[in-house]
Write a protein that binds this DNA or RNA. Structure first.
Length: 230
DNA sequence: TCTACGATTTACT
DNA sequence: GTAAATCGTAGAA
């Protein structure tokens, strides 16, 4: 059964933890690719110095409005209440809004995807309410065997956030996509992972994030071979 | 407009 | 352990 909106619109750390064990489903060329989520990271902007919504400088309200208006057509179908959306963003003085990170502000259950290092996309799922830039990075899934799956076609395995996007054929066209309504990607309720089967760890690749680099906001399933780094 | 760099991966010492 | 690949975006000029 497809995961519903209220799963995503909760506290980001809780969602990051409870995403473990859920099934990521991608419809591609008539076939279903399915993976069990085994590793996640929470990004809680703007206080989080690792978040794309964090900025040392305070962005003027008129600059924020400009970014929102310039990109409104890309997100309008996903925004419930434009007034509240804008009001919350403007109220948050330390939030940064850019063309890239605007999707982070969508309410829980949307995709925030972007390119890093010129090669690799990073799949994030937004969390909490509309107008708050919080999300969960999906770092690894355990591929589930499918009937009709052409094994020889599967060369790249979804271990690590960049390879995961290659495995599921994800790119910028998924930016903003609603997991609660999409016909080509969604999540289904999978396995319930017990608290003592979850490892909390430091996030990967964010050494620039000062004191936030030490937050234990990475979660993974204990003893799972698909986790990217132990 | 121009420059620097990154929520990674891979190859190599 | 270190370094290179690679390019769209953010921030500076």
């Amino acid at each position: 059964m497809r995961i519903k909106r209220d799963f995503y619109t909760r506290n980001t750390l809780i969602v990051a933890k409870e995403l473990l064990g859920q099934y990521l489903v991608r419809k591609y060329k008539g076939k279903l690719l399915i993976g069990k989520i085994v590793e996640t990271e929470a990004y809680i902007g703007p206080k989080d110095k690792a978040s794309h919504a964090y900025s040392k400088k305070i962005q003027p309200s008129k600059d924020k409005l400009k970014v929102i208006e310039e990109n409104w057509n890309r997100i309008k179908r996903y925004v419930e209440d434009k007034e509240i959306f804008i009001k919350r963003i403007l109220r948050c003085k330390s939030c940064k809004v850019t063309k890239r990170n605007l999707a982070e502000y969508l309410k829980g259950g949307h995709i925030y995807i972007y390119l890093v290092y010129g090669n690799y996309y990073q799949l994030n799922i937004t969390t909490f309410k509309e107008g708050y830039p919080e999300c969960v990075l999906i770092r690894s899934v355990e591929p589930l065997l499918q009937m009709n799956a052409n094994i020889t076609q599967i060369e790249i395995l979804p271990k690590g956030p960049g390879k995961l996007c290659q495995y599921f054929k994800l790119d910028n066209s998924f930016w903003g996509e609603d997991l609660c309504n999409s016909k080509r990607i969604w999540l289904e309720y999978g396995e319930n992972i017990k608290e003592n089967g979850i490892i909390k760890a430091k996030r990967i690749g964010i050494d620039y994030a000062k004191e936030y680099k030490n937050k234990l906001w990475r979660f993974y399933i204990k003893n799972n071979e698909w986790v990217s780094r132990k």
